[in-house]
Design a protein around this nucleic acid. Sequence first.
DNA 1: ACTTATTGGTTGCATGAGCAACGGTTTCTG
DNA 2: CAGAAACCGTTGCTCATGCAACCAATAAGT
Lengths: 165, 165
Amino acid sequence: MASRSTAKKEALKTLLVLERFLPYRLNVLASLTSNALAQIYAERFGLSIPAWRVIATLGQYDVRTARDIATHGVMHKSTVSRAVSSLEQRGLIVRRPNEDDRREELLALTPEGSAIYESLAPQALAFEEHLVSVLKPQEQELLVSLIDKLSRHARSLTREGEGEA
Amino acid sequence: MASRSTAKKEALKTLLVLERFLPYRLNVLASLTSNALAQIYAERFGLSIPAWRVIATLGQYDVRTARDIATHGVMHKSTVSRAVSSLEQRGLIVRRPNEDDRREELLALTPEGSAIYESLAPQALAFEEHLVSVLKPQEQELLVSLIDKLSRHARSLTREGEGEA
DNA sequence: ACTTATTGGTTGCATGAGCAACGGTTTCTG
DNA sequence: CAGAAACCGTTGCTCATGCAACCAATAAGT
């Protein structure tokens, strides 16, 4: 399992160790947590990640437009659009045209949607707590502050602050 | 922009603040860094994330099977399979059947693949360095150790250690 | 040795997401 | 006030990806 240091030709030297590469580590960790979390909202409620983010945002803010949700959840507007359609079909949210600006639609959770939110949010928080329970409270704070600092910086490296899921 | 605390019915209370939710934060940060990094290997070399991981792994280990790469890069085997096909077509890697076990194929970079690796890896490292330059060296170490601790723990919460990109 | 289970890798299928173009509205500008 | 520009949201297209079924090869069990 070790490295064959001398191949036929000059062995190319190891420039980068993937497991130590920060973007890789971040992706792995994000994937792990996303997947674990998805087991909650996908298996139990049939929600996709975007759908879950829509619900979480509406649970947090009561009423928002699709665009607000996209910005807030760092999702593409088409992603949000489809998630919203699907949630509406399932009767979890309602859309109401904004009479002041008829381009946009105000979205809100239905009672059924709220019920899901109220059931899901505590489970999500419990998961989070369980996840970070390996860290000391002090470490938890530190982690969050480091992540935020990095995120702010990373945002400035990309052209914009848009993105995907 | 604040919360309308008293809606028609009982306003549902905010249970979860998305921006403070760790899995969300991790996803945002991972997306930001992935996208920024992808600008390097996608725009300049036309590589996808899986392709880049294959190259990085082969650059690191010289010779591996597809399965090794999948495990190592936390990718699905079908993802790796397709990435490998595409890289082979482009002449960046070669496959050689393992005579000892003819189910598997040994993969290695071609000179062209190595050239890309040798050009790309330093750029990736430079990007990483630039990214973490907002953190003090001490903070960088801390971040990595926290991430690793969390990753190990998260892995134990999922059924397996497989995943996606 | 023969059957059965396991493993490495590929591929068809369905889903999901980004992109870009579009329709309908509002705002900005002259 | 008319035309251009910006903006919200939708949709067709394409591509990436996870899943599951599958083929070929090896290992395990009897």
